[in-house]
Each structure stands twice: as C-alpha cells, then as structure tokens.
Nucleic acid binder design. Structure first.
Length: 274
DNA sequence: GCTAAATGTTGAT
DNA sequence: TCAACCTTTAGCT
C-alpha cells in the first residue's frame, strides 16, 4: 500500500478525524507502551508527510504549539485502520496493534510499521534533513536532486528509489515513470539529460498527485487500457508493474522482470531499450 | 489450503 | 547479504 501518495492521504485523514481533539493513546500490542504514554491525553494539532514518513504533532492543549511528534514509517506491511464506534469505546484490537489513537467515536489503529516513535522538534528536523525532494511537497527542491543525479554513475532506476534523493517514490512509481519516459532503468544518472530529468520530475508530480486524489496508483492513459472508458480497472492500472510476461500496452513485447537493488524491476525491453 | 511474494527500511552479520 | 517487522494477496494445488 504505502508509497508517498498513501502517506500523504493518511496524514490528511488523521488530522481530519482526530485533529484538534484530546486523544487517548495506547499500545494494545505492548511494543509502543512507553511512546503511547507520552502521547496519551494530548491534543493532535498537526500532521505532515515527507516521502513515506508521517509526522503528527501533539500539544498539551487545543491552543498550544506541538511539543512532541509521532513519527511513523509503514514499511512494507504497515497499515492504519480507522473505525467509527459508539461512545462506549472501539472494537477490541484485531491483530498486533502497535498504537491505538482514540478521540470521541473515532479510533485509528496502527499495525506493522517499520518505524513508530515519539520525537522532539530537532529530531523531526533530522528526519526531514535526510529526505530528498518529495514530488507532493510545495517545498520540494528538484534542482538539488538533479545536481546529484547528473553526477552519479548509479543507474537511474536505483536513484529514483533513494529516499534521500527523491522521497516518496517506491517500486510502482519507479517502474511506471521510467516506462512513461521510455527510459532504460539501467542508464546511469549521469547519462540522463536535463530535459529528461525535468520530464521525469513533472511526471512524478502529476502521477503522485493523481494518486493522492484517487487513493491508488493509476499510470495508464485511457488509450492504452483494455477498457477505454470509465475508471481504470485493477488490470488496467499499470504499464509494467507486476505485468511480467504480459504484452506491453504500447508495443506488444512481453514485459520482463529482474531483481534489481533488492527489488523486482519491471520494464518493456523495447520501449525502454538502452 | 498452502506458499511465495509484495507498494520498505533497518540493523545485524 | 540477510533476517526481521507483520499482513494481505496472487497463484498454485
């Protein structure tokens, strides 16, 4: 589930349902008992997303500035589950719930995150500082990313996944944006020209914004789908991601998959020729 | 019904 | 380089 667009949605959602309210925090699973205690009884004042990292600012009152932040990274399995319930209380936790946040009749359960911790302001700044340009953020600095990319011999397909370069891109957006650009993932960053980088960045901004709106990743243009009208079906959502052996939507060549930097890389060998 | 893989990162070896 | 985190789903039988 979680690439940058998902985390952005969750940040918005969390603020909408729990923002401005005094929150009960607990760790039914027990692993985050100390952290939950630090948040329990505080007011959720703000949320933010940078790449795949979510921050939630908690304060002592409805008007105070946040003085501690919940920092969550979902990793591969992590998930937020929200429930509406009557005032007597939420349903008992299902599965291993690391953190439960409740205000009024709304509860958000966090399960399976890679990171879940309470940070101070300087520590939050440290996390931001080691993250790169997020296509979903207004303060993103694609120029800095370009300056690093153009000096790197690392394949562009690997660079796009480096969160300190571009934040929020995962395996789906990586594969899809490279396909849409007609770019071989193995090409070194230094062999990507400025025009191509600008195109990649603009496409990431457009695709990820669409992902935030739709709540899912859709990268295909209608003319490349089996069903050309209406919302894209699950089968029609991607050009190459998880389409190993299926014909490329543009040229018909079977899509190939290969292990690449500890992940599976999908591409069309013709549309993305070296 | 079972197994493997999955949109990710960290920390140990 | 690999295990761990922890759950869901796709693809088998």
């Amino acid at each position: 589930m979680p690439e940058g667009h998902t985390v952005r949605r969750q940040a918005t959602r969390l603020l909408r349902v729990l923002g401005g309210r005094r929150v009960r925090a607990s760790s039914p699973q027990g692993r985050f008992a100390d952290g939950a205690r630090l948040l329990d009884g505080r007011v959720l004042r703000s949320t933010d997303a940078h790449g795949k990292h979510l921050f939630a600012g908690f304060a002592t009152s409805e008007t105070a500035r946040p003085d501690r932040w919940l920092h969550v990274h979902l990793g591969l399995y992590g998930v937020w589950l929200e429930q509406d319930h009557d005032p007597e209380g939420p349903e008992p936790p299902r599965g291993a719930v690391r953190l439960r946040l409740t205000a009024g009749s709304t509860t958000a359960d966090l399960r399976g995150p890679t990171a879940c911790e309470v940070l101070t302001a300087p520590q939050v700044r440290d996390v931001h500082d080691r993250l790169g340009a997020d296509p979903l953020r207004r303060d993103a600095d694609p120029e800095a990313a370009w300056q690093r990319l153009r000096r790197s011999r690392t394949p562009v397909g690997a660079l796009l996944m480096q969160q300190d370069l571009v934040a929020g891109v995962g395996n789906v957006y990586r594969a899809e944006v490279l396909f849409r650009a007609g770019l071989d993932p193995h090409r070194p960053g230094s062999a990507v020209d400025r025009e191509m980088w600008d195109r990649l960045w603009a496409d990431l901004v457009a695709l990820m914004r669409a992902g935030v709106r739709a709540g899912r990743i859709v990268t295909t243009r209608p003319e490349h789908r089996v069903r050309r009208s209406g919302p894209a079906s699950r089968e029609d959502a991607h050009y190459v991601y998880r389409r190993t052996g299926l014909p490329c939507r543009v040229c018909g060549t079977p899509v190939v998959a290969e292990p690449f930097v500890a992940r599976t890389l999908y591409r069309c060998p013709v549309c993305q020729a070296a």
